[in-house]
Design a protein around this nucleic acid. Sequence first.
DNA 1: ATGAAAGCGCTAACAG
DNA 2: CTGTTAGCGCTTTCAT
Lengths: 344, 344
Amino acid sequence: MPRASQRPRLVDVAEHAAVSLATASRALAGREGVSTEVADRIRQVAHELGYVANPYARTLASGATSTVGLIVHQVDDPYFSEIAAGVIQLASEQGLLVQICQSGRDPDYELQQLRHLIAQRVGIVLISGSGYDDPRMESAARAELAAFQNHGGRAAAIGRHALGVDAVLPDNEAGGHALAQHLMDFGHRRIAVAAGSAGLTTVADRLAGVSSALRERGRPTTDLAVVHTDFTRGGGRAAAEQILNDHPGTTAIIALNDVMAMGVLSTLRSRRVPVPARMSVVGFDDVSVAADLAPSLTTIRLPMTEMGRTALTLALKPRTARPRRRPTGHLLVVRDSTGPAPIT
Amino acid sequence: MPRASQRPRLVDVAEHAAVSLATASRALAGREGVSTEVADRIRQVAHELGYVANPYARTLASGATSTVGLIVHQVDDPYFSEIAAGVIQLASEQGLLVQICQSGRDPDYELQQLRHLIAQRVGIVLISGSGYDDPRMESAARAELAAFQNHGGRAAAIGRHALGVDAVLPDNEAGGHALAQHLMDFGHRRIAVAAGSAGLTTVADRLAGVSSALRERGRPTTDLAVVHTDFTRGGGRAAAEQILNDHPGTTAIIALNDVMAMGVLSTLRSRRVPVPARMSVVGFDDVSVAADLAPSLTTIRLPMTEMGRTALTLALKPRTARPRRRPTGHLLVVRDSTGPAPIT
DNA sequence: ATGAAAGCGCTAACAG
DNA sequence: CTGTTAGCGCTTTCAT
């Protein structure tokens, strides 16, 4: 096999500049202890030679990595692809490389990916996507991350609070609350929730917001039908079927994310239930296609791309005694999928 | 600073197994020259110790990398996120890590990303997204990739044929042809094309297919209005505006990708042009939301996820004398956005 | 079949 | 301010 690289090495730069390895290294790293003239000359030579440091050698020698590992559930889910876009943008601005992994929404596999990333000696780990109610599911990841950070690594989470690392936290509860209020303002009384898998913290939090809004207005819990299915388009379809069959009085469906809302709309369309005339529908996240669905989707906007950037920003800062938390804020975006409750 | 890793090293495994470094290395790499018993014992010990090789040391010593660099235009464009999903899936199955970069549809920046990736010593480079008509834009990338491969790297492209590397090639021309035929079968005569930036090979190829279909049926080129805007949703919106204003007789719009089609539908909706009663619309790619738009979109299905897998598969095989080409095939998916031409 | 030893290219003490 | 040198952890001849 041919040598993987015939590229100039630091020695080459040093020789051409007639200095030692150490000096060359210092100059290029921008560390002090080199006279400005010499440093400039070295940089000049390096540039002429097209020298780029070998990151493997550098990492091996210094122990410091410049790559960030990102774990998402599915890159082709728009929620995650927008987050990833933000992470990659900022990473690129900082000269960092991003290694991306998919957990496929499987906590065990996610743990495996996390271990793999750490074993690969990434310097930063970013983990996104809902956490799990069951503390056992999280504790292994938590331990892994703690050990990682104790060895000098940095980590941040997006959308999960139980990992013991810095976190960007979407306004799940407040968003759920706002959605329920919006629907009640339109006079809806029989509201159903197309919820993702029970056991996901994101689902629990958003649902809690919905419930509290109902409670505030003195609505009986029986007004709220909650159907748990997958946190995906298919799950949305299934939930809608079940709602139409089991809760025929329903006039509004809250899907706990936009992807589920797309499934809900799909079912309603094939069942010829007019939206919003006969049934209002809301989603959560405001993925970019939400505005292009028909009817366009009323939803809670989360700044996904920015969330990705924020997470990396947190991880780039030194660790603090107790993990930082950055709430995202949220915005109710009213579009065409919601309207007054039909008169019965 | 604490040592970046307190992880077991190969020496530790070797000591515990009472063998030399060399033997341990061979056994774990599955190379021959180690008796089965000894090899098994070593693997056993490694497992117990939770040993994972340090990829930096490994790469430095061997020159062979196990990471693949992937360049996409935008991860949050569904076309690319589906491709990325395929690449990441297969990479993960193969124990490879994926470093992902966004070029932002800028050829210069793309070149820069490519160089960065190569400088980072990735073993494989995958580059996706349309190429450029202007051969000067491509030649630099082409040279870079050639040098990379001559030094033992491997590369593959998705959707571009002029890079001198193995390529997965979508059926752009045939797809364009099929779309035009489909519309003509519905009796449409005045067809407009919402095309992406002139200068993109993907645009040129798809357009060529459309034109050839018209020519085959003896239609004058004047029946075809081509509007070049960005290859994005916004571009689709703009193109639709322009078509409605400048070519009022149009009864069908061919958007050269689904994202543009979404923009077109959006404009038609706000202009209250009924689809397909007054205007038929088709897209290209069949991104997963295409079926959820309203009306659901008639389009050409491309197997994006599989294309990602195929590209990596090609790159994992040894290089051949002349670059391989893998056409993708295509499928016309007829949905609700197309119908008979309105009677005038 | 196994071991000893020489690097891979770079950083980081330690000297001067 | 600059140079020398000892590794980082692994692979890979070359011996045995």
